[in-house]
Amino acid sequence: MVRYHHLGNLWLTLATIGSLGFADPAAAQDAGRGLELMRASEKGNCSICHLVPGIGLPDEAQGNIGPSLEGVGARLTPAELRAQIVDARAMNPETIMPPYGSIKGLADVDKRYRGRPILTAGEVADIVAYLSSLR
């Protein structure tokens, strides 16, 4: 466990340095932060369902409920990625993927989280930046 976290941090540091130098300005500046948000259990926690390249966990410690996000930046445009993360129900009403940027129709939310979505618009943009870099 601890070992993976170290690996993850190392990777994150490299990714952040990389994004400073090479990021596409149109895709926002914070791909490194996006990856961090995808990993954080209080935030995206995306790898409980998806294989997320670069997250620093072995494949068998990541979920397989959703499709692997390998190469997703080549499959989907930034706008499509954003829509998927903000409210996956718009694409698939029966989806199991949580609506990260919407609180529409939520019931019984614990009071610690009530009244706000999991991610802010800025945080979604950071994640879109990271996913767009996966080609």
Binding site: Q62, G63, N64, P98, I103, V109, P117
Partner: peptide
Amino acid sequence: ETRRGQLNLACSNCHVDQVGSRLRG
């Protein structure tokens, strides 16, 4: 069978629909 919480999931979403899948490891 009712979805709830900020993650909008029902017990059945995992324990009926996703039996055998992996949640994290």
